[in-house]
Design a protein around this nucleic acid. Structure first.
Lengths: 172, 172
DNA sequence: CTTGTCATGTTATCTTATATCATGTATCGG
DNA sequence: CCGATACATGATATAAGATAACATGACAAG
């Protein structure tokens, strides 16, 4: 899942997406995790939902709902927007995928199973997205919320910039 | 600008929006700051742009582009989407307003003039939005970015939850 | 078997955003 | 003063993202 030989590879915290890695495993692991969790929680991991997750897992970048819809249609599923949005809503609601608000697009969760506040690094050059963990209540925001009496329920943390591989290309 | 008598009111860091305050000042201060900065930097603070900022400053919540457009039209400006988007783009590009990605909507900057990475607290009950300061490079995200070799250029930090005044109402 | 629940399919529509071309206006060097 | 340039605005059309509402099907509980 993480780059082989990476000095501090840790499946729970290592940002996936910028480094070379066994991508087949990403897909298999993602599907397996979802299957298990759905079985546990009595959720229906139906064909559309499974396919939608597979589609997202194919890449480490965010896909728009209509991009997902196109691929669902190609795979023989319905072709109207709600088909995609419903599948994506299910995946997001159950922690198998996340919505990248900055891009109005969706990406498979890189750390499925673990409950977490995700944080994303979005490369503006190649559109790849890596997921890390945020600690929203610890930083300046958490302090501001406590001071103001604001109860945080969910956080969106997205950094836009340049990924290592694009930075390298740009330097060359 | 901040609530009179607030124990730790500090114009540079105090989140505005949830507490009672002299709202007329918000508007006046926002316009004044924009005027000054535009003069300094040779930017044209044209009537549409001024009006758009005024519209945003009217409330401590985020307005959709089309909501802004409606009010611009009411004020005698053009009524086509690009009118609003261009004005909003200008305001955002120059730090007079921010886009709330979670809401696809815009809000006047609460700390104009200061260069900052904004963080927002969005009340899901009353839609009010308060702006605080984020310290993106300091927390877990900054660490992850350094580890991954990702160069952060801009961050989106938005917390969704319940503001103090709505929490109070809910308790009652 | 019928009732309720959940998933899917389908139509229509709404909201958000941008590309493009045309027009106006201020500034500046010649 | 004139023409070139840059920037701002106006207007048309369309793309992209999202949801409301209604109909159908599958299945388990009563």
């Amino acid at each position: 899942m993480t780059s082989p030989g990476h000095p501090k590879a840790d499946p729970a915290t290592d940002p996936v997406g910028f480094a070379a890695h066994d991508h087949g495993r990403c897909v298999a692991a993602g599907i397996a995790a979802a299957e298990e969790r759905c079985a546990d929680k009595g959720l229906q991991f139906t064909p559309v939902r499974r396919k939608a997750l597979e589609i997202l897992l194919q890449e480490h970048r965010a896909l728009g709902a209509y991009e997902v819809l196109d691929r669902l249609r190609d795979a023989g599923f319905g072709s109207q927007p709600p088909v995609a949005y419903r599948a994506l809503d299910f995946l997001v609601a159950n922690g198998f995928a996340h919505k990248i608000e900055r891009l109005n697009a969706f990406i498979a969760c890189a750390h499925p199973g673990t409950s977490h506040s995700p944080a994303f690094m979005i490369c503006r050059l190649c559109d790849s997205v890596a997921e890390a963990h945020a600690t929203p209540t610890r930083g300046a925001l958490g302090q501001a919320a406590r001071d103001a009496g604001f109860r945080i329920e969910r956080t969106v943390v997205e950094a836009e910039g340049v990924c290592p591989s694009c930075a390298e290309k740009a330097d060359a």
